[in-house]
């Protein structure tokens, strides 16, 4: 019975939205890349690099928002590398993406060790504080969940609306969707497929970087190894779950966050009966199940993972 009552606690819903925040950024970022026809498996590493670089900027005396900007910039640079290798050079998107993840992760750890050769406890920063939205923060359940969060979570919500508006309401968004569906037709319209794809991958990777920075600047206050812990891969599953739509990505990320927050609480309740690893496994199992369920009616971008070469059919 107690397990059921947890569902009506405000702290559960607040935790769900908090856990969802980095996933919202990451999923939106991956969604933009894939909408343009590019799979970005660099996401796991880009989030790690964002988490590290954003945190380092703040640790060295920068403002918190400067940290977010640095994370976005680092993400965009890694996106440029991925975009350059898979779009004009047409290299395997799988292999390049894994390579970017390995590179970004290795560089983050290397620079962390150079900056802090011998620390026993990770150095800390002052992270984003909770900013209650006046008037709305006191609503029951909804208040703590949606309006008692850190500014980066609000930014995640704004990003969902912005990305949706961009993709469906602007000519540039139409161009992104066209190069992901039918690059030859886009070319015929005078759209430069290579440029649009690279810019989309850079923008998406910048969002992934911000998602990573949420982990170190908002959820925690220091950088650890293996901190990203598969969040990037979960974002890739969430994109499929969301059928490549920003609104559903938000929904999927919050559902996932809710599930993760719930299993954490169940773990405390039933930890003595069921091994804690079972609970930790559930989010990953859920992602696989979601992929199977959604596989029936996915309408993935037609040119996803298809390199485009002018004049080739």
């Amino acid at each position: 019975m107690e397990a059921f009552e947890i569902l009506f606690t405000a702290s559960l819903w607040a935790a769900a939205v908090r856990i969802a925040s980095p996933l919202i950024f990451g999923t939106l970022g991956e969604l933009i890349c894939e909408r343009a026809g590019v799979l970005n498996l660099g996401i796991e590493g880009i989030m790690t690099a964002g988490a590290f670089s954003g945190w380092l900027a703040v640790y060295l005396g920068g403002d918190l928002w400067l940290g977010v900007a640095v994370a976005a910039l680092v993400g965009a640079c890694l996106g440029l590398l991925h975009g350059f290798m898979v779009v004009p050079l047409g290299l395997s998107q799988h292999v390049t993406g894994i390579g970017i993840t390995l590179l970004a992760t290795a560089l983050s750890y290397y620079f962390y060790r150079i900056a802090f050769p011998e620390v026993t406890s990770p150095p800390k920063i002052e992270p984003f504080a909770v900013f209650p939205v006046p008037g709305l923060a006191d609503l029951p359940i909804i208040g703590p969940a949606l309006f008692q969060q850190t500014p980066l979570t609000y930014l995640a919500f704004i990003a969902v609306a912005l990305v949706a508006w961009f993709l469906y309401r602007t000519p540039a968004g139409l161009a992104v969707r066209t190069v992901g569906e039918n690059p030859a037709a886009a070319e015929a319209q005078g759209i430069n497929v290579v440029t649009v794809r690279i810019l989309a991958v850079m923008a998406g990777s910048a969002l992934m970087g911000i998602g990573g920075s949420f982990i170190t600047l908002s959820a925690f206050n220091s950088f650890f190894f293996e901190m990203t812990n598969g969040r990037g891969w979960i974002c890739i599953a969430l994109v499929v779950f969301a059928a490549w739509q920003p609104g559903k990505a938000l929904l999927g990320a919050i559902l996932f966050g809710l599930f993760d927050a719930y299993q954490l609480r169940l773990q405390q309740l039933a930890g003595s009966v069921v091994p804690y690893q079972v609970f930790l496994m559930l989010p990953f199992v859920l992602s696989v199940v979601a992929l199977i369920v959604m596989s029936r009616r996915v309408a993935y971008p037609r040119a996803l993972m298809v390199p485009y070469r002018k004049g080739e059919r």
Binding site: L41, G230, W233, I236, A237, M281, F284, S287, V288, L291
Partner: peptide, 10 residues
């Protein structure tokens, strides 16, 4: 790709 990656964690 996604399922093999997720299985690593599981």
């Amino acid at each position: 790709v996604v399922t093999t990656l997720l299985l690593n964690f599981i």
